[in-house]
């Protein structure tokens, strides 16, 4: 039995996709629809469907962010799901999907287009690549997609203004060792102390120099020069030790390729 998850924040569109899929693929088991990215991620990790239909623009996490998080946290064992991205109008995204041979649907989704997608998915489920290859392939695609979908670089941030009550701490960016996402905030960690800023990592990233700060996990951006060593674990993750901080950081599978020996 094949199970599928639909992540779509617009209730009508979700209901329609559900109905159309049910008609075209009667054996398909549909998990409850996820109305936002966070729910989609949790549901997918908990129920491990074979297929995920991910809307690109969703609350909490975008479809691409859900895919990246799945690639990072997908457990060993079950096959990585086949991903189909759904988008309303975004010619750049569509070009990126085309270039990566990733399945995508453009809303409104005509019935015959969905039927073709269903056939392709069924064929691919029958000849599934071994787990390791499927995951590696999905990750290579996602890396490129995330690269092409990155927002354009903004003026570089020089100083971070971290407010505590009425007091604002000025933290020079070149003293920061790493940034870590914490709910709606970002933790700014220097050698001596840490601060919280009200900003998402997504908003912060375009303001950092990508040659200086590397994203190593969806929630972590580290100063490359502050990384002392990287140890590859069996799970595909990489543990990083830092110069100037005692704690370790984890680089996910999606970014582990940054820490290969020369």
């Amino acid at each position: 039995m094949t199970t599928a998850l639909i992540a779509e924040d617009e209730p009508l569109l979700a209901a329609a996709l559900r109905a159309d899929l049910a008609a075209l693929w009667p054996d398909l088991v549909l998990l409850p629809t996820a109305g936002d990215g966070r729910t989609a991620l949790d549901t997918a990790l908990a129920r491990q469907p074979e297929l995920c239909f991910l809307d690109i623009r969703m609350p909490a996490l975008s479809g691409l962010e859900v895919a990246a998080a799945l690639a990072e946290d997908w457990p060993e064992g079950p096959g990585f799901p086949l991903l189909v991205f759904v988008t309303a109008y975004d010619q750049y995204a569509v070009q990126a999907f085309e270039a990566q041979a990733v399945d995508y649907l453009v809303k409104p989704v005509p019935r015959d287009r969905l039927a073709a997608c269903v056939q392709r998915l069924q064929a691919r489920l029958q000849h599934r690549a071994p787990q390791a290859d499927a995951l590696a392939q999905a990750m290579a695609q996602l890396r490129t997609l995330l690269g092409t979908q990155a927002p354009p670089a903004q003026p570089r941030l020089e100083v971070i203004q971290a407010q505590v009550g009425n007091l604002v701490h000025l933290v020079p960016v070149d003293q920061v060792i790493y940034f870590e996402a914490a709910d709606k905030y970002v933790r700014v960690v220097t050698a001596e102390r840490e601060h919280l800023i009200r900003l998402s990592l997504r908003e912060l990233l375009p303001q950092l120099d990508p040659a200086v700060f590397w994203q190593v996990h969806r929630g972590t951006v580290v100063r490359a020069r502050a990384v002392a060593s990287a140890r590859r674990e069996d799970t595909g993750k990489v543990t990083l030790t830092l110069a100037g901080r005692s704690e370790t950081l984890v680089a996910s599978r999606l970014y582990a390729h940054l820490f290969k020996g020369m």
């Binding site: 617009e10 009508l12 569109l13 209901a15 309303a88 109008y89 409104p108």
Partner: peptide, 18 residues
């Protein structure tokens, strides 16, 4: 904005059936 327009049309398409 095209995104708004196409999403609206996609919804409309569903609503016609429902």
């Amino acid at each position: 904005e095209p995104h708004m327009l196409f999403n609206t049309l996609a919804n409309l398409r569903v609503l016609i059936g429902l």
